[in-house]
């Protein structure tokens, strides 16, 4: 009974890990610029890796090796966002402009959401203006 529960738990974890890694792969390929890619590349992938590593830890059971797996999980969770931040910061410092909602909306037809409509008025002039509606 417990064996069966463990088996299905492992299967669910592996499949979930695969799913989130798949999402991250799709995101890396589809998203328009480096900053957007960093979101899925490092964070969704972190969750995918975390779930798969959890499955491995569950399969190895209570032994020395699963301690390694937990350590790996810890390192992945610490280092991935830091690496993403480092890469995004280096992109910002080399002057890569992010594709923002306004510039992307010119070429694409996206359903207008409330947030984008009440921001357009203030963002078109200058870019760094304070938005009254959002900050008040």
């Amino acid at each position: 009974m417990i064996e069966a529960a463990r088996f299905w738990a492992i299967v669910v974890l592996v499949v979930a890990g695969l799913f989130f890694t798949f999402v991250s792969a799709v995101g890396v390929i589809r998203l328009p610029d480096i900053y957007a890619r960093a979101h899925t590349a490092s964070q969704t992938d972190t969750l995918g890796a975390g779930l798969a590593l959890a499955a491995v830890a569950l399969a190895l059971g209570w032994q020395q090796a699963s301690v390694y797996t937990v350590l790996l999980l810890f390192f992945v969770f610490i280092t991935n966002p830091t690496a993403a931040h480092a890469i995004a910061r280096s992109a910002a410092e080399t002057g890569i402009e992010p594709v923002t909602a306004d510039s992307a909306a010119d070429g694409d037809t996206r359903e207008p959401s409330t947030a984008s409509t009440d921001r357009n008025s203030s963002d078109d002039d200058g870019g760094s203006d304070v938005d009254g509606g959002e900050t008040a």
Binding site: V14, G17, T21, S24, V28, I34, R37, A38, A41, S42, D45, T46, G48, A49, A52, L53, A55, V56, A59, L60, Q63, Q64, A65, Y68, T69, L72, V76, N80, A83, A84, I87, A88, S90, A91, T94, I96
Partner: peptide, 29 residues
Amino acid sequence: QDRLLAVNVLGTNTVVILALLAAGLDEPW
């Protein structure tokens, strides 16, 4: 930076693959 990001994700993937191999081939080292 795009390439670096992709390789970083590949690295995370590698870690996962190695862990899965460890469990799959039952070689914890």
